[in-house]
Design a protein around this nucleic acid. Sequence first.
DNA 1: GTTTACACGTCAATGGCGTTGACGTAAGGT
DNA 2: ACCTTACGTCAACGCCATTGACGTGTAAAC
Lengths: 220, 220
Amino acid sequence: MSERVVPEGSRQRRRPTKQGAVLSERLIVDTALRLIAQHGAEALSVRRLGAALGADPTALYRYFRNTDALLLAVADEMIGRAQEGWTATGDWRTDLRDLGLRIHGCYQAYPQAAALAAHRTTGRPYETRAVERILGVLRTAGFPDALAVRIYHAFVDQALAFAAQDAAALALPPAAQEKEAEVWHAVYGRLSPDTHPTSPPPSPSSPPTCATAATPSPSN
Amino acid sequence: MSERVVPEGSRQRRRPTKQGAVLSERLIVDTALRLIAQHGAEALSVRRLGAALGADPTALYRYFRNTDALLLAVADEMIGRAQEGWTATGDWRTDLRDLGLRIHGCYQAYPQAAALAAHRTTGRPYETRAVERILGVLRTAGFPDALAVRIYHAFVDQALAFAAQDAAALALPPAAQEKEAEVWHAVYGRLSPDTHPTSPPPSPSSPPTCATAATPSPSN
DNA sequence: GTTTACACGTCAATGGCGTTGACGTAAGGT
DNA sequence: ACCTTACGTCAACGCCATTGACGTGTAAAC
């Protein structure tokens, strides 16, 4: 009957693995994140994670009910990192913008993991904290609750949607990224001759992203 | 040496399977889409798809190099359906808005499939057609090419990002959707007492989506 | 200090997965 | 009528997540 996974709080009996590693929820999540970043999302398997940790693969099931739970923990970790060091300034536009850019930055830093995590609800501490902070910002700004919730959703959905989109572009294997660039050259080539015979291509080296597209560009 | 997959154009030798089905790229894609819609994304496996088609699972490899190629075909099919019956009006804002809503609608109709397909580049006919149509709209509107490409990206990225986000919410299993709703009730409950003791909750039955959030709401 | 309970790392096993290579048959071009 | 070969089928490989049983060492109880 006794549950296989014990909650992290009451975890006491630490025992090293055969290879000497001492496991913990944190260590596992960090290792998973590193594994995904280095070798891509599909390189994350219970067996490989076990190997990377220096433990029997099935030891993970003492910490997470299944791989999906582990994935949610990874997602929450990223939400946590996005908030690291953030503090409210009191200006709600500044605060939300800062949070949004942090999320975007964090997802861009781990695009492979972001692709897995972006559209999930973790129900874990960091996510809860983020929700509370954002609603706190809006309440402090004086929005009535109904409107605050509305703004919350508009903000979070847009931030997550854009972050996910840009992360997905970044998570493509380099070959696919090049191919995409080629497609754009081809399209431009097909467009150009009949209407604008000799105009220069639009900075083909850096394709636009959600972030750049949504940001009012300086004079351009 | 001879390639396992024959391009659809030059495919001739149709032969029924033991169970009498006559395969084709279209049939396979449609069946896959139906399978995903009915039983969720993780129910799509080569073996199950083979069973649904009434064919040996490995027959699929005569039509698609691997499951990823099949997935891209499914993604392209959705792009194709989004364009079905669309025609340009000449007003570029109307045309883009229409296309965007069609994509959104199509993804909402097959949320499970959308989750798999949203962030992929298919490189297939329907996608190519969509790109050409959108750029055509912008060219017809008189935008110089550089700006047209910029607007193209702003539009497509936003449309896809929002469609993906809303599809992801819809693709959650009903239990998770309820849980999410509960969380919102809880948050609202926690918010309410100290600042707005008795204001009614903000229509808790229908959570906001990207589409509703981005649409200027009537007077609300 | 000894005992006791159980947390947790390990092992073995199960069933599903994608993918490959070989094979034979029937369809189409000639 | 023949020949070629497309393509459906079969068998097999290696990887996957997950489970149940087991035993050991640790932390707590006394």
